[in-house]
């Protein structure tokens, strides 16, 4: 199995504080790795390092076989990224169709293609809507659709289903599951939704500045481990894969 993302002994310091210390993980072809941990554990930082958005001090990071700084625009087109809680200037007039054309390029200039892109997340009715008038969940769906449209090899998703209702959330993860199995894409998903993690992840990595544990959902999503990770009493129900 080829590793699409490989992180070894990664340490990242932001504002003089070590956010990540000696974290290692990998995402191979056909894997959906869930990254879990409490708020401020360094999950988003890890994703941002993998995308080359922030530098790291120690360790080694390889994305599609290259250090993040060496990724070309063509490489980046093969990485689908959905950031956490999209915030943008809501005063600019922009239609969803115009945003998608800007994001996806000339190959998607035709209206029918854009509708097809949105269909994947049950959002074709949003094509002619103003971006600034979308709810958080609707906007998240548009960005997720754009991330999937270019048939990426690796997905880096930072709480991608935040604000999306349960039905569409399952539909979205079903779609990733389908792409994972059919096209062997790999995905690293930051999520607090342990039910989703249990149902879809092939492997779970838990971090809290350091690597705490890694394994299958059945191995990791155990009451003592989760209680220690989040610091709260929990009960766990496992989905059968």
């Amino acid at each position: 199995m080829v590793n699409l993302l490989e992180v070894r002994d990664l340490s990242v310091s932001l504002g003089g504080r070590w956010v990540l210390e000696g974290v290692s993980l990998s995402v191979g072809e056909g894997e959906l790795v869930a990254l879990i941990g409490p708020n401020g554990a360094g999950k988003t930082t890890l994703l941002r390092v993998a995308l080359g958005l922030i530098p790291y001090q120690r360790g080694e990071v390889r994305v599609l076989g290259k250090p993040p700084a060496k990724l070309t625009p063509a490489d980046r087109a093969r990485i689908g990224y959905v950031p956490q809680a999209l915030q943008f200037d809501r005063s600019m007039p922009l239609l969803v169709s115009e945003l998608l054309r800007a994001m996806l390029g000339e190959a998607f200039a035709r209206r029918a293609l854009l509708q097809h892109v949105l269909q994947a997340v049950d959002a074709e009715h949003l094509l002619d809507r103003e971006v600034r008038a979308l709810s958080g969940g609707e906007l998240q769906r548009v960005v997720v659709a754009a991330a999937l449209a270019l048939e990426p090899r690796l997905l880096l998703l930072d709480e991608p289903a935040t604000g999306i209702d349960v039905g569409v959330r399952l539909q979205f993860y079903d779609l990733i599951e389908e792409q994972r199995k059919q096209r062997s894409i790999g995905a690293l998903v930051v999520s607090h939704d342990l039910s989703i993690v249990s149902r879809y992840a092939t492997r779970v990595v838990c971090i809290h500045h350091r690597l705490l544990c890694t394994g299958t959902p059945q191995e990791v999503l155990q009451v003592p481990i989760i209680e220690e990770l989040y610091g709260h009493p929990v009960s766990v129900y496992h989905h059968e894969h």
């Binding site: 980046r76 087109a77 950031p83 943008f88 200037d89």
Partner: peptide, 16 residues
Amino acid sequence: IRIGFHRELAQAQGVP
């Protein structure tokens, strides 16, 4: 348009 919408997303997607 991509930068105006979300600078970090544009950067991650390879916009210089």
